[in-house]
Design a binder for these strands. Structure first.
Lengths: 340, 340
DNA sequence: ATCTGGCACTCTGTCCGCGCGAGTGCCAGC
DNA sequence: GCTGGCACTCGCGCGGACAGAGTGCCAGAT
């Protein structure tokens, strides 16, 4: 029906205007700025219906209308087209990421880039260990009974653990151990690593048994278990800019970002299909984020999902642009990580 | 003179009251809360002198007095005793840091701990590479002409760099290269590493020359150069609590904390003697920090200075307590790092 | 010589009342 | 089903009045 169609146009116009001005938008201003072909009075009727349906609301009796979470949701699902990035922006992405020297540098550049593009807080999960494979295991002797175990994955991630050994270790043992470990684990997915530990114990020569057992325990307990994933955060300064959108205080949000685990859960719950996921306001379930929206997507090229990245900001944000930026950055960083 | 002495007591009382209440403090309230043995009128005279000398100021003609940067400076230098930590706090420090599994974990626990103890933003510099020594160099083949170079230092830090090789590399080359590198560099201070590269080239067998040259260049250029040091930040949520102390906006401060380089310079300029350094307001020179104070100290046990750590907060902070916390945490983390 | 009590003065923050403007809802007419 | 008009509501900003806190200064007490 042409009727419903126009009402949606009105909603779209309200969202667009409100996002750019931060003022509740009234019927008159709407009629002026968008040629909807009808008069303010007609728009008022549409607005009344939209309000009844829960898509918009008015802060006080005689102010303009403001989109609700539900309104933003409809906007994102049906009323917005993903806005392609400008050539300059695409070039900026490449320039920004190409100079990275190691994994941490890639992540920190990525969040800074994303924060700059979207003017929001950007977050990125470290490539998940459990989905990557062992490239190399290194053993370094630190003290007589102390070894440093270094794991290098094919995603370029390096993990280290101290292992307290039950027996004295000498140089030859270390070399033998290194060879043995790499022989067993090289190329194995980390998810499968736990299953390989018994094999390891079997193939180990008798004099290394106790040592290998200790190492195996550390490997299983700390490296295979998920959840130790880290988060890189950037652009918190952008929160100050949008402080007006968080009436109480920025505190809960800052706390959630430091807590990591909350945001991590949101960011890592991404669609494996590569679609950008948007969570608006109360949809986030967690109280600290109830006034915020999260735009996230998985990264990792091809079939290999490595983790999630995205942005956190006020519900009043420019969804089309931000979704485009998140998607573009995720694609590019996925490529970079695949190459290294 | 008893005269001057009492004036200093008045200044101390003003600082203490203002820090705890955040209200400009007047003569009457001062006389009530501290027994200085004199009447408000007398205190008023002292305050007039203190104001003339630049230690305090009044926000408006008829409000109480507030300490100036100069006033805080005098307070820190001469009027405060470092407040010892409570037993519970000391125990908390141990408990918090003992569960750390790797270097990054130690640092991130440290800043969280320090932020919690002081209710300020805590920052900590990664152990400086240039002051540590090579424990092990690992070479891993990633592609035909691509090697991953992993450096493990005696402070437990792991650095990785990708090296693009001018020639194809095979398995035996990698093993030989690894042995060669460790033979040359193991135990060497990173500051001396650059000087060892020519030796490396000389001892290299002819067929590895070009490869070794490439590796040597990467080593010198990226690992020996300082300034690539990272910063770990924690407790930004505490900024929201003290937002009142930063009239304009939190933005400049948040930006400075993200920029890292500014804060890094402040934190790394520590007294090698182990004394806690306090920079108050304008003393920080950098504009973004002109309303903030930085309390910092070097960490690293014994003669080995590893880096700096500290806190950033409003000039209106509890200096004695915070200085004690910073010092205690630095000592403890220094021990932990020496052990690992 | 130094401290004290009293007093007049100044300034801020707050509360109140008012008018303005923006925006709405409704209704009659096209 | 759209439009113009109209009465109504409500938040916001402005100005004045007021109370409270704090000061500076002076004369008197110790």
């Amino acid at each position: 029906m042409a009727h419903d169609e126009r009402r949606l146009q009105v909603l779209r116009a309200i969202v667009q205007d409100y996002v750019s001005t931060n003022d509740p938008v009234g019927s008159k201003a709407l009629a002026e700025r968008h040629d909807l072909g009808v008069s303010p009075a007609t728009i008022r009727n549409d607005m009344a219906v939209l309000e009844e349906q829960g898509y918009i609301t008015q802060p006080h009796t005689s102010a303009g209308r403001v989109p609700t979470d539900k309104g933003y949701r409809l906007f994102v699902d049906r009323l917005s087209a993903v806005k392609p990035l400008s050539v300059a922006e695409k070039r900026a992405i490449e320039r920004f990421l190409d100079g990275a020297v190691d994994l941490h540098d890639i992540l920190s550049r990525t969040v800074r880039l994303l924060a700059q593009l979207t003017h929001q807080v950007a977050v990125m999960q470290y490539p998940t260990l459990s989905r990557s494979a062992v490239r190399h295991l290194e053993v370094v002797q630190v003290a007589t009974t102390r070894l440093l175990l270094v794991l290098i994955t094919d995603t370029g991630r390096v993990e280290q653990r101290l292992v307290e050994c039950p027996v004295d270790v000498d140089r030859d043992d270390v070399a033998e151990l290194r060879a043995l470990l790499n022989q067993t684990f090289a190329g194995a997915r980390l998810v499968d690593a736990a299953g390989l530990v018994p094999d390891l114990l079997e193939t180990a020569p008798p004099h290394l048994r106790r040592l290998v057992a200790a190492i195996g325990a550390v490997l299983v307990e700390t490296l295979v278990e998920p959840g130790e994933d880290r988060l890189v955060v950037g652009g918190t300064a952008n929160l100050a800019r949008v402080a007006v959108d968080f009436p109480g205080s920025l505190r809960p949000l800052l706390e959630a970002l430091e807590e990591q685990v909350v945001v991590l859960r949101l960011i890592s719950e991404v669609d494996t299909g590569g679609a950008v996921l948007v969570r608006i306001g109360e949809e986030n379930a967690h109280e600290a984020l109830s006034g915020a929206s999260v735009v996230s997507v998985g990264y990792g090229s091809g079939d290999r999902a490595l983790g999630g990245l995205g942005i956190v900001g006020p519900t009043r944000m420019d969804y089309p642009t931000n979704m485009a930026a998140v998607r573009a950055v995720a694609r590019y960083v996925g490529q970079i990580l695949a190459e290294s």
